[in-house]
Simulated assay, not measured.
Amino acid sequence: MKKRIVSVFLCAAMAVTLMAGCGAPAAETGGNEDGGSSTAASEGIPKDEIKVGFVHISDPSDMGYTYNQDLGTQEMQEKLGLSDDQIINKYNVAEDASCDTALRELVDAGCNIIFATSFGFEDYVVEVAREYPDVQFCHATGYQAADAGLDNFHNYFASIYEGRYLAGIAAGMKTETNKLGYVAAYPFAEVISGYTAFYLGAKSVNPDVTMEIMYTNSWNDPTVESQVAKALIDRGCDVISQHSDSTAPATTAEDNGVWQVGYNNDMIEAAPNASLISPRIDWGIYVTEAVQAMIDGEEIPTDWCKGLADGAVYLSPLNENIAAEGTQEAIDEAAEKIKSGELHVFAGPLKGVSPEGEEYEVPEGEYYHEQEEASAPSWLYIVDGCTVVE
């Protein structure tokens, strides 16, 4: 899911588009929920003949992002009854020309549909998709499909900010110093949206809480993640959360006697005395839908995003041994309100400043329509109570 710096500006442009939504009536559903425009239906492919390819930036041993993506692949394989030789994984592919090579190798291997799971893959996916119109390409966390003009190119993501808000409740109820720490990969909208939601969840149950954020400038670097977590702990943060791929923040929290909220994976096994809970995405829902559409000759949505109400976003089990009393009840109550539409995570009054200094404000009674018009997150404003530290 690596994003280059240009994505901040692209997301800022997307945010400007969504600003109008904050002052206008909210759409009942975002365009992505019904799939928006879709590919033309085909005759379908017999289930025992279809081949599915994946390009990943890491491998399941990261116990984070790629691990969780791979669980989605396994879910799809089990549900559809595909054999092992019908699935080809390309692991540890960098966001450079090696991605182009991996995509072409999958095409040459006969893959009918290919999933590329890191943001920085998108330009390569678009290029290869143009050359092979008979192969379907699905790209996670990107934004270009809606304007690419390609029937065989699609974006997909999930509203993980909803899960992060709920996980923030566990952190806000647990902290004793009222100071949270966040190990963040990059200053991109996807990351900022996530940690803002986490903080707002914590603040909903603890109005005195503040949060400090430090960037690792990497998606998966256990050494740096541990160093950043320790630096935040040394600054007085007693609950550490993360948008990074390894369990290093969890084990560092455990080693230093504080608590942790994970991401992508249940991290209680890695840190039984520290890890409270983790927000996760069930990637298997989309992957299964897309492959089934190929089998049935049906359309694949151009842009797909689902969330808590659809089961695409969920939480790992709460660590009842260390969570504050009443945490599960508070999470359950908020979850039901999110599902019903009573609770909007980015509800006003809310104001923040982008990394470039752009100010943004959501008035009271309105809310920011995160991921309703497009699957890619676009909230990139650092709100009051959150501080980025070096």
Rank of each mutant, 00 (worst) to 15 (best):
M1E: 09
K3W: 11
F9I: 15
V16W: 08
G23M: 14
P25N: 03
A26N: 12
E28S: 07
T29F: 13
N32V: 11
G36N: 04
G44W: 07
I45D: 04
I50K: 07
F54L: 14
F54M: 15
V55P: 04
H56S: 10
I57D: 10
S61D: 11
E78H: 02
K79A: 15
D84F: 06
Q86A: 05
I87Y: 04
I88W: 10
S98M: 09
R104V: 03
C111S: 12
A116C: 14
A116Q: 13
Y132P: 05
Y132H: 15
P133R: 13
T141R: 08
D147R: 14
S159T: 15
I160E: 07
Y161R: 00
Y161F: 14
Y161W: 09
E162A: 00
Y165K: 01
T175R: 01
N178M: 03
Y182F: 15
V183Q: 11
V183K: 12
I192D: 08
L200E: 05
P207C: 05
D208V: 01
V209E: 01
M211Y: 00
Y215H: 06
D221W: 08
D221L: 02
S226N: 13
K230T: 10
L232N: 07
I233G: 04
I240G: 03
Q242Y: 02
H243S: 05
A248R: 04
T251I: 14
T251D: 05
A253K: 05
E254L: 09
N256G: 12
G262K: 09
I277W: 08
R280Q: 15
I281G: 04
T288E: 12
G297M: 04
E298C: 00
T302V: 13
D303R: 01
W304P: 01
G307K: 01
D310C: 02
D310S: 13
G311T: 00
P317E: 00
E320C: 00
N321T: 09
A324N: 01
D332C: 03
V345T: 05
P355T: 12
E356M: 13
Y360H: 13
E364Q: 15
Y367V: 13
Y367L: 10
E373Y: 09
A374E: 05
A374F: 09
S375R: 06
C386G: 02
